[in-house]
Design a protein around this nucleic acid. Structure first.
Length: 289
DNA sequence: CACTTGACCTGTCCGC
DNA sequence: TGCGGACAGGTCAAGT
């Protein structure tokens, strides 16, 4: 569920909280959530200071002054929540937080900083992970070698977008949008939202969609992603930002989780079906072949 | 090559 | 109220 806007929102929060803090201690209780050698933890994590927090696709990169990076993928239910110490942030947790006292039963990793503040990696379904790697090796990861361009990059053009979509011209458009090697960061929510906006049926083959419509999809996708970042992302089930706050994009969603409701454009009832193995929301009147 | 299915997990919800 | 099963949907691996 964390897609590009959610991960970007977490990044923005962490980039306010973390840089400059020195890691003093770490606890973790689920091996797959923290697949690192103990010697690397000792040598390159403990005592390290956070320098920067970056994002690529749906992956967070927490850079350390040891030239190592904590690579984090939230997958479906991951959360990274920062909590300050009592002096700095008051007793308990902020009242706007969706999550309660931490750690809780979904906490997989706890990073404690020298000043008493903490970063909690919560992950109910245990699909996510937090991996320590030498910073130069991050871009060598198979995933980063294959992942497509950032859709919000200033130099990402409609022509590039269309050209990359055409690499899978015989596939249904939604499956192609979800393919991280075509364009980075799109997941189920923003695939459905942008296709509705561009009036394209999710099962339509790329080769059958005119360029003018694909150009509309490019605009729709960028607009939707930017709006969602503005709104702090989408909280469907348990996504929260680095302060534990939910995102409000779904208030503005046109089809996602709106089955049974009227389409904002034509009034036709939104339906939910399955496309490319995923729950898919469409207006059958606006989005046809 | 491209598509589908299964695996990884847990919590929630629905029908009986 | 209890219980089995479907479902949530990011990514990789295996199968067709």
């Amino acid at each position: 569920m964390p897609e590009l806007p959610e991960v970007e929102t977490v990044r923005l929060g962490l980039s306010q909280f973390l840089p400059g803090r020195r890691i003093a201690h770490i606890t973790h209780d689920w091996p797959k959530s923290f697949p690192n050698a103990e010697s690397d933890v000792q040598d390159f994590l403990l005592g390290a200071r956070v320098t920067e927090v970056r994002r690529r696709a749906k992956v967070l990169l927490i850079d350390l002054d040891t030239q190592y990076t904590l690579v984090v993928h939230l997958k479906m239910t991951g959360q990274l929540v920062f909590r300050g110490d009592r002096e700095r942030f008051g007793a308990g947790h902020p009242s706007h937080s969706l999550v309660g006292d931490l750690p809780d039963k979904s906490t997989r990793v706890t990073l404690a900083f020298e000043d008493g503040s903490k970063l909690f990696f919560n992950d109910q379904r245990k699909f996510g992970w937090m991996r320590l790697l030498p910073t130069p090796e991050v871009e060598q990861l198979d995933f980063f070698q294959k992942v497509g361009p950032e859709p919000l990059a200033a130099d990402f053009t409609p022509e590039q977008f269309i050209k990359r979509l055409q690499r899978r011209k015989k596939s249904g458009i939604k499956a192609v949008l979800l393919d991280q090697t075509v364009v980075a960061g799109i997941g189920n929510i923003y695939a459905d939202e942008s296709l509705w906006s561009a009036k394209i049926h999710p099962e339509q083959k790329v080769q059958d969609i005119p360029d003018t419509k694909l150009a509309k999809l490019y605009e729709a996708l960028r607009t939707v992603l930017k709006l969602s970042i503005e709104k702090g992302g989408s909280t469907d089930r348990n996504y929260v930002d680095a302060a534990g706050k939910r995102g409000s994009y779904l208030t503005f969603a046109n089809v996602f989780r709106r089955e049974g409701q009227p389409c904002a454009r034509c009034g036709t009832t939104i339906i939910k079906t399955k496309v490319a193995g995923r729950g898919t929301h469409i207006c059958t009147h606006c989005q046809h072949f």
